[in-house]
């Protein structure tokens, strides 16, 4: 369990997160939703220690994250940022860098690291592109390659910042199915989402943020009829007869 206990963080003197407490569980896909600027991405950076906390504590399986090094955190939590460079390397080379936290002297990847990377590429279906340059892949396949890198990191939790951005709808659905599959296999997936129907369709739990705080947590069916969704986003989310969710707006 990843437990955030009254954490506050921000940029310089500006406080963005204000006393947030929330738990993220292994084996569940949790989507963080909220309007632009409410602090979703900042929350992920604060969990990873990329952004320093001004107060509060974060525990991972009972261990205080503030007391361990960034390298040790990287063995427990993988992170994919929103704005990703397209590095000039092959898929295999990038996925292998998922093993970076485990590098020791003489700073070279071992045969075990390579085996883990190959398995990660097979899991997300990019093994056939292993020797292709990243820039030659479609946006969807490239996103899968990044997820393979996160899998190679061999962590219990993966945090993703808006992973469906720039993908067409088919690739968005494919990516969400992959994330769901990973959570079903035991990973704790925490993803920032902008597309509400996608978030409601695939998530086990949703965390709703507004103005640097968390205003609701629950399952999609618990949250879809709450008035706060309409208050914040200006639209309603309705569950259709086939069980899928859709926007409803006037």
């Amino acid at each position: 369990m990843l437990e955030l206990n009254r954490i506050s963080a921000g940029y310089g003197k500006q406080t963005v997160l204000d006393g947030i407490s929330v738990d993220f569980e292994k084996g569940k896909l949790t989507s963080i939703i909220g309007v632009n600027g409410c602090g979703k991405s900042t929350l992920l950076k604060a969990i990873l220690g990329i952004l320093s906390l001004s107060s509060g504590e974060i525990f991972i399986d009972g261990e205080n994250l503030l007391t361990i090094s960034r390298n040790e955190i990287a063995k427990k939590i993988a992170y994919l940022s929103q704005g990703k460079n397209i590095p000039d390397m092959t898929v295999e080379q990038m996925v292998l860098h998922g093993r970076f936290p485990y590098l020791s002297y003489p700073r070279r990847y071992s045969s075990h690291d390579r085996e883990v990377a190959i398995k990660a590429m097979e899991t997300v279906g990019v093994a056939e592109f292993a020797h292709k340059p990243l820039y030659s892949l479609s946006g969807g396949m490239r996103q899968n390659a990044y997820i393979a890198m996160a899998l190679a990191q061999d962590t219990d939790y993966i945090l993703l910042d808006e992973p469906t951005t720039y993908l067409d709808i088919a690739h968005q659905l494919e990516l969400m199915r992959l994330l769901k599959q990973l959570s079903d296999n035991g990973k704790g997936i925490v993803t920032v989402m902008h597309d509400l129907p996608l978030a409601f369709d695939f998530s086990d739990t949703l965390t709703v943020m507004n103005n640097g705080g968390i205003i609701a947590c629950g399952t999609p069916s618990e949250l879809c009829n709450l008035p706060i969704i309409e208050d914040i986003f200006g639209v309603k989310i309705k569950q259709m007869q086939d069980g899928m969710y859709s926007y409803q707006y006037q």
Binding site: S69, I73, F100, P101
Partner: peptide
């Protein structure tokens, strides 16, 4: 390897423990 990881972008490199 550190030089290559830097090219993944600052936040991703930090996420990898660098």
């Amino acid at each position: 390897n550190e030089l290559d990881v830097l090219t993944l972008g600052d936040e991703n490199a930090k996420g990898l423990g660098m």
